[in-house]
């Protein structure tokens, strides 16, 4: 399994992160959160070598002008909590399916495996676990179709 994380370069406005921050403060009234960074996560379960995965990340998953990526490592520096939201396994992942088509276009053939995706939110601030869980259940995840997980970062 390959895990690719995609994030905006720091010089560009993270509109999703900024919007999420505003929703947490204004709708959930959790004022202790200071900033939010948004990260796209792609989980490729296929028999690919590292060079192919790098090629997929560079040519398909990022916009080279505004984004950067990490393979099998995580964006987390400077943040206190990480929340990850993904679709239940039995729910169709349209973004993942589109990524599979894109990979086939680049590699010129069949893809032996599949792609699932997740949304990751990095939170900075003195939040307790109860508040983080509330952010997951009341804002970021739709429990009918999505799972969430969170972890405290060192």
């Amino acid at each position: 399994m390959w895990r690719i994380e995609v994030s905006l370069l720091s010089e560009f406005t993270d509109s999703v992160g900024t919007g999420t921050l505003s929703d947490i403060k204004e709708d959930l009234l959790i004022k202790s959160v200071e900033s939010v960074k948004y990260v796209d996560v792609y989980l490729i379960d296929a028999n690919l070598d590292e060079n192919s995965v790098k090629e997929i990340a560079e040519k398909l998953l990022i916009d080279p002008i505004t984004q950067e990526f990490k393979i099998n490592s995580e964006f987390s520096n400077g943040f206190n909590w990480a929340i990850e939201v993904s679709l239940h396994k039995n729910v169709t992942d349209n973004v993942g399916m589109t990524a599979e088509e894109g990979i086939r276009d680049i590699l010129g053939g069949k893809l032996d495996g599949g792609v699932r995706t997740a949304r990751k939110y990095l939170l900075k601030g003195k939040l307790d676990e109860k508040e983080v869980k509330r952010i997951c259940t009341d804002l970021l995840a739709n429990g009918i179709i999505e799972n969430y997980s969170y972890k405290k970062l060192d």
Binding site: K59, L60, L61, D63, N94, V95, T98, A99, E101, G102, D105, I106, G108
Partner: peptide, 19 residues
């Protein structure tokens, strides 16, 4: 195009390039 998943028009752009 293609739901604009993976970024707007990214899949279409790659089809134009690779296909």
């Amino acid at each position: 195009s293609h739901g604009d998943y993976l970024g707007s028009a990214k899949i279409l752009a790659n089809k134009m390039t690779y296909k």
